[in-house]
Amino acid sequence: MHARHFTSAALARGARRSLAIALGLAPFGLVVGVLAAGKGLSLVETGLMSGLVFAGASQILALDLWTHPVPILTVTFAAFAVNLRMALMGPALAAWLEKLSGWRLWGNLFLLVDHGFALAIAEGRKGERDGGFLFGVGLVLWVAWLACSLLGHVLGTVLRPPRGHPLFFAALAAFVSLLVPLWRGRHDALPWLAAAGVALPVARLAPHGAWHVVAAALAGGLVGAWRERRQGRA
């Protein structure tokens, strides 16, 4: 019954397409492992965190706040604040998700992550709608994320790249690359400007968490939709 909405051919296609992004995320995963080792988390705990949470920015923030004993509510809220942006991704992928159920739906929701989301949106505009593609992308990123954070934990004591090391730029470079296929044309300019204009002051006022990302997504969305409605009336 899921034959057309979730195919293994699309799963393989998604897995292949996400390999490059997985490589770009590798330094980010290594950093998480190094940080976890530095905070005294065991290899098993590091693997559990990366496997179950699977959201880099929130893991880095939580590890920054990690003490012994760990403030459980604080790290839980940190994860919520940083990952609230993901609540906007599921609805944007509704066309992919609404025909799925069971593990195919929940698997895709669990594996939802920024880079995979951006890739899916870009491919979706070219006509891709197969839930298997989404799952293949997420699965490769999840395996790579787990492997890299475990490797980072092992290397943690040996290899300690300093905070400003250019290797860390790879994670930002991955986001910058993904902006190119997300650009649809001139009608994106005003929403993107609004997003930047809102993100900058919010990032300054609330540097912890990812409120600036949520605020930018809402501002860009509102400006775009508001202009479409005005043009529709005119």
Binding site: A92, D114, A195, A196, A199, L200, H212, A216, A217, G220
Partner: peptide, 17 residues
């Protein structure tokens, strides 16, 4: 319509700050 603009704006929100 709003959700169509969310992905690009979201990544701008990351990259610009």
């Amino acid at each position: 319509a709003m959700l169509g603009y969310v992905p690009g704006a979201l990544f701008i929100g990351y990259v610009v700050p």
